[in-house]
Nucleic acid binder design. Structure first.
Lengths: 177, 177
DNA sequence: TTTACTGTACCGTCTGGACGGTCTTGTCAA
DNA sequence: TTGACAAGACCGTCCAGACGGTACAGTAAA
């Protein structure tokens, strides 16, 4: 049926993220992903000729979604500055129970260079925020604190309680102005 | 009682960190570590019976060194608060050219639970800092920003320039008081 | 003798990837 | 409307190699 074949690609990407989250980043094998996606290994290799291409797909997908989410936030709170939108978006992301991006570790293990586009994206975001403020020090503090929050979420480390996270976010929003 | 040749254990640990940094966290195999340490595979397995034990050794070693460094900082700038010492220590750590801890990714791939002691350590550190201030909001901002700085260093992502890092640190020290 | 290794040989498992085959869909001339 | 046929999407099997780990005999210092 057409329904099954509709978009294997997206299902595979989602399956890969699921496997990495549930079985651990070290268990992200092509077989596991194919099984999870309800696709044969051949079908998986058809969509992503190598494991590296699959990782690349995950990175690109991640960055695209992030950009869309951020743009949506900025649009919906138009009068605010982009930094506040970024803070709120990150806070909401980190409120979700699942880390959702632990496939990044698999990608790094495959090849550390997969981080390059992510780094570039962050630099770009930082430059953009820089253009919106004249207080670089405060921006740096906020930007890095958000980075810290995201990294804790990525590592799934519950160092902070929910109240502490809320206090952090409100403090950051105050600094961001 | 220690080895006839100076401390194989430490050499193995250092070799593992080197391999992870230079060949990538995905290439951290027992053979590679043994070669790098100038030790046979048998010798490696003698010191660390399984790969998991090796990872555990890396984590423990890392945490011990971190604690020692932090204590030294606190002692040497006794009148300051511990948060400032932590900020300065982290700033210096991140000034070094090499990420130095990318073996963490290998450990996560092996088993995500290796993060547990690190998380616990950080929580402990956070609690300690909490006891030294009455402004929890500012502490959270500083603590998380440092976390962000450390994560960027870990990911070897050069999002910030050196001047930006310096400005960040001075801003944090101002907030920390 | 004991401790702390070295060195070699080996095993079972898993992995990414290549391959050839199969089913489905779209196109288009008759 | 039909039949032929090409292209696309996917399946199942197989394999070389790498990996973690074991076993064991040997060795050199304390």
């Amino acid at each position: 049926m057409k329904a099954r074949r509709a978009n294997s690609r997206d299902r595979i990407l989602a399956a890969a993220a699921d496997v990495a989250r549930e079985a651990g980043p070290g268990s992200l094998s092509l077989d596991a992903v194919a099984n999870r996606a309800g696709v044969s290994k051949g079908g998986l290799l058809y969509n992503f000729p190598t494991k590296a291409k699959l990782m690349q797909g995950l990175v690109e997908n991640y960055l695209n979604e992030f950009e869309q989410d951020l743009e949506a936030r900025v649009a919906e709170t138009g009068h605010e500055n982009a930094l506040s939108a970024y803070i709120r978006l990150s806070a909401d992301d980190c409120e979700e129970p699942q880390p959702s991006a632990s496939w990044i570790f698999s990608a790094i293990a495959e090849d550390p260079d997969f981080l390059t586009p992510i780094t570039a994206f962050k630099r770009q975001l930082f430059e953009r925020l820089k253009g919106e403020t004249d207080d670089l020090g405060s921006l740096l503090v906020c930007f890095l604190a958000i980075e810290g929050l995201r990294s804790m979420n990525l590592f799934d480390s519950d160092v902070l309680s929910q109240e502490e996270r809320k206090l952090l976010v409100s403090s950051l929003l105050k600094i961001a102005g």
